[in-house]
């Protein structure tokens, strides 16, 4: 009989070592299930937040895009094209790692905000300001999406480990421990019977 990566030796010493291991694994299992519960709760919170933020941002985006199309039609493609060129490549961001339950998730920090101040003429500036705001909100939505994705991946992994521990590894180790115990008990009984038999033989010989 064997456990993954471990050759079973039915000895008392091995049984003690195995029991110690089972205790450690059970402690790990307890901690991992706590992590799983915490991750689930964090993930649920984030999902709720994400749903609310995304609904708001997407609603606004829809309005802004509709408005943009109107302004596009009003000013013509040339004016929009020329103005779109004015403000390129001015957003600097830094992605910093933030630890949630030991999982590193990205946090976006704007080093240099998009500045459209003093740049645009009438009519176009109305939509430019809205678009800049929307762009920053989109970054926030992406940040939350990324957090959710990373937490969900980790939750899936943790869940798999917890399930493996709960359903396979711990029961398997416990059954091995039980098997060793049974073997040892059997060996003990055999030894006892052997001793008793020998004692009887010795007693019988002395009686002769």
């Amino acid at each position: 009989m064997a456990i993954v990566g471990l050759r079973v030796v039915p000895t008392k010493g091995f049984l003690l070592e195995l029991k110690r291991r089972i205790e450690i694994i059970k402690e790990g299992y307890r901690l991992l299930s706590m992590k799983r519960d915490e991750l689930t709760s964090r993930l649920m919170e984030l999902l709720e937040h994400y749903k609310a933020v995304k609904k708001e941002v997407m609603g606004r985006a829809e309005k802004i895009v509709t408005r943009f199309r109107e302004i596009y039609a009003l000013l013509g493609p040339e004016t929009i094209d020329a103005n779109a060129s004015i403000n390129r490549g001015v957003l600097d961001i830094d992605v910093l790692p933030l630890s949630i339950m030991g999982i590193l998730v990205p946090t976006v920090k704007a080093l240099r905000e998009v500045s459209v101040k003093n740049l645009f003429g009438p009519v176009i500036r109305e939509i430019v300001y809205d678009l800049v705001e929307l762009f920053q909100d989109m970054i926030k939505v992406t940040e939350i999406e990324m957090k959710i994705e990373l937490l969900a991946t980790d939750l899936e992994r943790t869940n798999r480990i917890v399930n493996a521990l709960e359903k396979i590894i711990i029961p398997e180790m416990e059954s091995v421990a039980k098997y060793i115990e049974d073997m040892l008990e059997e060996e003990g009984l055999e030894e006892f019977l052997r001793v008793k038999l020998i004692r009887n033989i010795i007693v019988a010989r002395r009686g002769e």
């Binding site: 509709t66 199309r69 109107e70 596009y72 039609a73 009003l74 013509g76 493609p77």
Partner: peptide, 20 residues
């Protein structure tokens, strides 16, 4: 006419095109 052709092409509601 420029507003109309672009507005219709980009599916802007007719009332909104008329507004512009």
């Amino acid at each position: 006419l420029s507003v109309i052709v672009h507005g219709i092409f980009y599916n802007i509601p007719h009332e909104n095109i008329a507004r512009f």
